[in-house]
Design a protein around this nucleic acid. Structure first.
Lengths: 203, 203
DNA sequence: TGAGGGACAGACCGGTCTGTACCGTTGTAA
DNA sequence: TTACAACGGTACAGACCGGTCTGTCCCTCA
């Protein structure tokens, strides 16, 4: 908020005329706003306000609003998909099968958070439509999630891992939408069906 | 909600002024535009253009944009949920269990249509958020879909029909999102899991 | 000491949005 | 025939949008 906040505070990564990295503040603000409120509901003015950044500074770092949304989606993939969901699930189980089922344990904890914001990739896809570049990018990131599931299925030695991952993904997405509707037990319901899916794919 | 239908009943095409009730033309245009493009992407100007109606006429029939969206959601419930999905599924099966599974047959035909527009209730819910009045209305209409499933489950004599319906609904919503991503076989995948769900709820 | 440059502030532009007001026209009822 | 109500057309108000631009401040480095 404060304009002068930490002018040289950063641990000096950039030589020369470097500064507190306004670009990072923009990305942080974009993550907060876009993940909770969607794309169209957040304007550039509010974004630069939150980041404590001038408009010209924003447009020096990003070519357009779509550009910063793409950067947000990439950040979301890293912080949420990989660091939260995949890493969280892997740490909760020892065998690949346990790790797969643990995805819905992570979901269960996530669904009951008061700042639960659903899946940004689904949100953006449905908000912008599959024809829009941002919708297409969301589809790509959703495919990456499915790839993680497929990799775990292969580690578990399950049959037809690609088909398995697509069915598994239906459970993930369906439970997220149900959680958005207010069903706090959606993760447990999906996990039950996920168990049957594993059984039917065991050789 | 209903556009008041002030003039004479629609006993025939009017010779002079408005041919087929301006209020109905507005609702028809709203259905076409909102179901295919969402809410925020469609402005009032485009809506009245499509309906062939003056702006003042629109605001004589509907108090606001939200008002006409509510009317659209109601229409969507009638034309899509009831007439297409539920009636279609009931006509395809003889027993309640067959009728339940036939939902995903209807979905399968629906997903491959080139004008596939996904589920408006999910779209509006994620577009506006669960806190917005339109999001809340969407949640209510989604609950009505679940009620239809629950009724079929009760007819089929399945155990714990409410829990069954919530799990079933996860499969419906998840497959719709997958279809939006481009998976044309999402309905078959969901149907397979739906079969297992029925098995586990048979007394 | 002074030049250079990144950051902040904010005016400004064209366009779009929802919603209102006013117009002349036309069919229907009295 | 006249009064009325609904209609299409359109200008307008006020807000907001994404994006451009100018000006000022301050830090860094030569």
């Amino acid at each position: 908020m404060t304009p002068q906040a930490g002018s040289v505070a950063a641990s000096g990564p950039r030589p020369g005329t470097a500064s507190p990295d306004a670009g990072q503040r923009i990305l942080d603000a974009a993550y907060e706003l876009f993940s909770r409120r969607g794309i169209r509901d957040v304007g550039i003015s509010e974004l630069i306000d939150r980041a404590g950044v001038a408009k010209a500074t924003f447009y020096r770092h990003y070519r357009s609003k779509d550009d910063v949304v793409l950067a947000f989606l990439s950040q979301r993939d890293e912080l949420w998909t990989v660091n939260q969901i995949i890493a969280g699930a892997r740490s909760r189980g020892t065998t690949p099968t346990q790790q797969l089922l643990a995805i819905f344990d992570v979901f269960g904890d996530w669904f009951i958070r008061d700042d639960f914001e659903a899946c940004s990739f689904i949100n953006v896809l449905l908000e912008m439509g599959p024809g829009h570049p941002l919708g297409q990018a969301s589809i790509d990131y959703l495919a990456r999630i499915r790839d993680h599931v497929q990799a775990l299925a292969e580690e578990a030695g399950l049959a037809r891992p690609e088909e398995f991952a697509r069915s598994w993904h239906i459970l993930m997405k369906g439970s997220i939408v149900s959680a958005t509707e207010g069903d706090t037990h959606a993760a447990a319901r999906a996990q039950e069906m996920a168990g049957w899916l594993i059984e039917h794919h065991q050789r």
